[in-house]
Design a protein around this nucleic acid. Structure first.
Lengths: 138, 138
DNA sequence: ACGATTCCTGACTAATTTAGTCAAGTATGA
DNA sequence: TCATACTTGACTAAATTAGTCAGGAATCGT
């Protein structure tokens, strides 16, 4: 159970943006350099982040990206979802499970994995970009 | 961020064992059939579970596996660790991180991922095989 | 003794996912 | 008009996953 670079990079870049931008657009080049991330990879990620409305882009000279919302209202969970790194603890689509273990028509372990997923979701849902910037983490 | 079949199967099988065995050994064939899991894959997993002391094996006719400890004292987290499905939210080995973002010599996001890992570990640590069997899940 | 059952173990592999690169284009400001 | 910077899709090498396969060794019932 591991976190891939996609999600990690996206959050790192967004935190960087929230932290260093002061209303002015930051170029991916700048972010990529500071965070030591591959720029072409970031391009892919920011494409999605823009399409989902988390950042705004300015093209051309002195262009770059800006947060489209306040840092305090962008949750980590949203970023991960936007770039396609969902939390998948259960395998079954929805709640349509037929009994693996007979007792009640639903596998015993299903509730376990669902609980784990809820736990993770809750944690990442409760933390915003601003929280990370200000080191407000439990 | 997804849970692989390795961890899922291992826990499913261990829960099955705890649930259906009554002191008597259960063969992998039986478990695999009931849970609809590939038997040769289970063999690999139970090899490790035995080496780590979570199950005991009996060979030959009427043989199989038995829990080596009480179901109430086997945590889900231990099973996952035993078969090599660790929780990896951070990438850095130990706490030896050099500053990605300048503020304090440690990357801002590190604390975030570490927190997530702690959260997951805590959840899986607090649940035993017996809990799953008795559907004592939050 | 023998044969069925079952664990034991390592080697191997097909398919998928990850983690990117590359190339070509479009828009903007100096 | 040129350098900067976003935009987008196609492509790919490497790693991981999710197993299969084959052969062996121990044990029990008959």
């Amino acid at each position: 159970m591991k976190l891939g670079t996609k999600g990690r990079y996206a959050v790192m870049a967004m935190v960087d943006l929230a932290f260093y931008s002061e209303g002015k657009p930051l170029s991916l080049t700048e972010i990529a350099e500071r965070q030591a991330l591959p720029i072409s990879y970031l391009e892919q990620l920011f494409l999605k982040l823009r399409q989902k409305g988390f950042v705004m882009s300015t093209r051309g000279h002195q262009g770059g990206y800006t947060l489209a919302k306040e840092a305090a209202s962008i949750r980590i969970s949203e970023i991960l979802e936007a770039i396609g790194e969902p939390i998948e603890t259960t395998r079954c689509k929805e709640e349509s499970e037929l009994g693996c273990l007979g007792t009640k028509g639903q596998c015993l372990t299903h509730a376990l994995w669902a609980g784990l997923g809820r736990q993770m979701q809750q944690y990442l849902n409760g933390i915003s970009l601003a929280d990370v910037c200000q080191r407000r983490l439990t």
